[in-house]
Design a protein around this nucleic acid. Structure first.
Lengths: 146, 146
DNA sequence: GCAGATGTTTGATGTCATCAAGTAACTCCA
DNA sequence: TGGAGTTACTTGATGACATCAAACATCTGC
């Protein structure tokens, strides 16, 4: 803590800075996705698909209406980035699974977020660890809904 | 640096955490905006309007097509949150200005981002300052376009 | 086995995003 | 001066998201 003697920021300043970082990262993500002909929403869905996930679960994760997910998955399925599979234990649910192509494309999108990667590379190990610890402190409160 | 002895996070972990914080904040903002019948885009426009701003400048800030801004400002103007004024020095440009109601509503939106406020309140002054300094280091690189 | 809850889709509607094209106004230089 | 080229804004077409309401099949519990 000797190298930097930061002046205390007002809460508003911190809030605005956080917003700026957030939008910058979002733009980086959207741009990388667009590179592969994906909308940011489609990329977001792919990013969630580590394992099979019911439509409803997807809607919950995206915090949107289930009917919305239908269309998004339709378009992803048309490009064979995703598949709908019947759930063996409940015939109502359809599990969405990423295809190999889908996994590959989202991997590349993450890789190509150059602005974000570049920014994180400017931090040394200690700084990264500090930032990580601070953000992790914020996370639980931030993710509580109103 | 004694209270916390953070284990070094991988870059991927840090990236994901940053993304999580970003989307949490975005949701908080969108929810607060919805409270006042604003879409997140409309709220974003209001947030930019500190002074008069030409349509084109707004489009640049939002990183979107100018034709898009026409519709957004139309809807804001219909609700009298915003006004189009002729520019005295260039009759092509229309400057967008927030009305009193517009300024008031965006002020309240910011106030009501409870998740974000709550999260930031968990940091003491030193931590805030550290976070601020780190994020400010990231900012310039993050905002560089690809 | 029936009533109610749940998962998914369809259809209507509104907002946001793009692109292409059109009009008005500005700039600059020959 | 006066036209060529640029710039600001709008309009219209189209597509992706987002919501809600309603339909349908299936599950659950009593």
């Amino acid at each position: 803590m000797s190298a930097t003697t930061p002046t205390a920021p007002t809460k508003l300043e911190l809030l605005e800075l956080l917003a700026a970082i957030g939008t910058a990262q979002w733009r980086d993500f959207a741009a990388a996705a667009a590179h592969y002909g994906l909308t940011s929403t489609q990329a977001r869905v792919l990013a969630q698909l580590n394992g099979p996930l019911p439509m409803r679960g997807l809607a919950t994760l995206l915090v949107c209406d289930a009917s919305n997910v239908t269309g998004i998955v339709d378009r992803l399925e048309a490009r064979e980035l995703v598949r709908r599979e019947a759930d063996p234990s409940d015939r109502r649910v359809k599990n969405v699974v990423a295809t190999d192509a889908g996994r590959e494309i989202i991997r590349r999108v993450r890789e190509e977020m150059q602005a974000t990667h570049g920014a994180l590379d400017t931090l040394d190990e200690t700084e990264s660890a500090t930032l990580y610890a601070l953000l992790e402190r914020l996370r639980p409160t931030m993710e509580k809904d109103a």
